[in-house]
């Protein structure tokens, strides 16, 4: 119970903190809508009007990934810049429990992208929100956010070890959009991308949402997504413990 409370209160606090940044909010508000508009016109131009809802959902998932990638990837670095890294690492909890709420918060902020693209599509382009499995869609969306939050923890723990983590974050946005099949079906990609796609939680999260939207077996995708995410959580937790111990021993916690 105490564990859940730490996670819930931490997540709420970090969502509030993220919402205080005019830059973060403006980008989170506008960019997904631009991407959704682009997706709608692309699908219309391709004569795929019947797949507009799928396009809007795909654009929304792209927004969640962007939020997690930039938010979680830089989670530790931003705490360092804010001067709060030492304080949260001094908390009498495992590092994973104080960093995970930050990465889940970035996923939650990203869910706005999904909601915005659906609302935008409904009111501006008249896209009917006829989900094949409405309940499964909500469950899949929640699982997707939590799963990407856990994946974000692994990113946060590994990015902090790299000097050029920003460059890696900038580089990873489009490849993951592409390989995970958020808008482009995996089947049209070269076959060597298949194994990469199979180990990414983004692939299964996007697939679960797509199946809940247009029909298909949602639950196996949700299950695989959760399984991979738990693995990411475990690896991220180990990496964070290693990073924390190394930083304490070398007295470099606050140093970039």
């Amino acid at each position: 119970m105490s564990l859940l409370r730490v996670l819930a209160v931490g997540t709420l606090m970090h969502v509030k903190q993220l919402s205080r940044s005019p830059f973060e909010m403006a980008i989170a508000l506008v960019v997904p809508i631009v991407q959704a508009t682009l997706a709608v016109y692309l699908f219309r131009s391709g004569g795929e009007q019947h797949r507009l809802l799928e396009a809007a959902v795909g654009a929304g998932v792209m927004g969640i990934w962007s939020s997690v990638l930039f938010g979680s990837g830089g989670a530790i670095q931003s705490q360092r810049w804010l001067g709060t890294l030492e304080m949260i690492m001094l908390a009498p909890r495992r590092p994973v429990l104080v960093i995970l709420p930050i990465t889940i918060a970035t996923g939650l902020t990203g869910i706005y992208a999904l909601l915005a693209t659906l609302i935008w599509g409904r009111f501006l382009y008249g896209i009917r929100l006829d989900f094949a499995h409405p309940v499964a869609f909500v469950v899949a969306a929640v699982v997707c956010v939590v799963a990407l939050g856990m994946f974000g923890l692994l990113l946060a723990a590994t990015f902090v070890l790299m000097r050029n983590a920003n460059a890696l974050a900038n580089t990873l946005e489009y490849p993951v959009w592409l390989v995970s099949g958020m808008l482009v079906p995996i089947t049209v990609l070269p076959s060597w991308t298949g194994p990469i796609a199979a180990v990414l939680p983004t692939t299964w999260g996007a697939r679960a949402l797509r199946e809940a939207t247009s029909g298909g077996p949602v639950w196996p995708s949700v299950g695989v997504c959760l399984g991979i995410s738990v693995l990411c959580l475990a690896l991220g937790g180990l990496a964070l413990t290693y990073v924390e111990r190394r930083a304490r021993a070398a007295a470099t916690l606050a140093l970039a």
């Binding site: 391709g46 592409l178 482009v184």
Partner: peptide
């Protein structure tokens, strides 16, 4: 790849 798939 998106353009190829949608044949835009």
């Amino acid at each position: 790849y998106l353009g190829r798939q949608l044949q835009v």
